[in-house]
Design a binder for these strands. Structure first.
Lengths: 212, 212
DNA sequence: TAATTTATCGGACACCTGTCCGTTTGTCAA
DNA sequence: TTGACAAACGGACAGGTGTCCGATAAATTA
């Protein structure tokens, strides 16, 4: 069963017909219904059959639109994630224009990521498998975050803020590791860390990278 | 349904009878059967009903011994984990006796953790939920690793190897974050990092903490 | 407007995890 | 050895995720 998708047409195939109106409407209604049920009962307590029933669609229809609950949760996060991306990249551009140090930008950015993840923890938790598959059909939703961290580290290297020759892509992944949904929730919920404490610890580690 | 458990008797309860011989034998057979099936087909492809059937026990019996597949996988790792713990703590004691710097010990330790996790990735993956619940009845299997990292960081602080006043417990969790099963597998399998590269990146971050 | 094509539908079904409770059996005491 | 107790058993069953495919209906063409 193929997923509905926003992928570009492949050049060797005939042009694809626009999505049917009923499918568009069903998808919208599914998302709206899920959002309402999640708000009312919590993401983990709402099952896919509940959503299908409440949205008045069949299970096959629900799964045709969303491969699994995680994908549905990511779809629910689409707007917030796009807005978060725009806002943070815009802020980083302003910080650059003000000639703020790259490491300061990085510190700000990682703090913003921690707070975004905390605000959306239930959905991110439900979506954790999808989040962690970079080659998934929906693309890795957080790949831009990694690219941003790599870019800032490269800038910091260029500006002499950190030592040259480090493996910056891998370091970026190490720094982002605590923000991954399962680990983040382990730290925040199970281990009882406050957001500030998680963020501060990551910042202490980042500051350690700086040349002194 | 209560789990069989090696927990100490609670003082307010009557002394508990030893586990029945048939239960002991069943538990052993379940573990041996699971290990064989996992080796043959891969952890993810073997289901609990498969194990029960092959071990010639009922599903109720299987779940009486192990709350879920994760707990069964952790039980399979018991011997290796105990041995890994003994060996690494012993090596760290030797390094201390040789007056090796605490950060060097930490680097060695984190590398050992990465390699242990890689070697046991399928079981750890299946057990990820159990691994990440510090208050679980089986105790957090990797709590000793965290305590070790905290201890080494405190030693490094005391010896002036790292700056004073950092939040060492939280930093320990940040440093260990990339070794958590889901993140580790994301880096190793999905992102294609080699073990050496993951380990080296963590080490670069740790070195950054050092005073220069 | 009717016929054709095919995207999309939905609900019966498969599969896996995990539960429940009547039955069996290991262990101990008499 | 027998009886009592309760630990342990197992398989029918429940519940949730996800699949499958014949039926329906949106969209296009004649």
């Amino acid at each position: 069963m193929k997923r509905s998708s926003a992928s570009l047409p492949i050049l060797t195939e005939a042009p694809q017909r626009a999505e049917r109106a009923d499918a568009v409407a069903n998808r919208r209604r599914i998302l709206a219904t899920a959002e309402k049920l999640f708000a009312k009962r919590g993401v983990a307590n709402v099952h896919m059959a509940d959503i299908a029933k409440a949205a008045r669609v069949g299970q096959g229809t629900l799964y045709r639109h969303f491969a699994n609950k995680g994908e549905l949760c990511l779809a629910l996060l689409d707007a917030q994630m796009a807005e978060f991306q725009d806002r943070t990249l815009s802020t980083l551009r302003e910080m650059s224009a003000r000639r703020e140090r790259k490491l300061e930008q990085l510190l700000w950015f990682l703090d913003a990521v921690v707070r975004f993840n905390a605000r959306h923890a239930p959905l991110l938790c439900a979506a954790q498998r999808e989040v962690m598959v970079p080659e998934s059909p929906t693309g890795a939703p957080f790949q831009w975050q990694r690219l941003t961290v790599v870019g800032l580290l490269q800038g910091a290297e260029r500006d002499g803020e950190i030592e040259a020759g480090l493996d910056l892509p891998a370091i970026a992944d190490v720094l982002l590791a605590p923000t991954h949904p399962p680990v983040f929730n382990f730290l925040h919920v199970a281990s009882g860390y406050t957001l500030d404490r998680i963020s501060a610890a990551i910042q202490q580690v980042v500051r350690g990278l700086g040349c002194r």
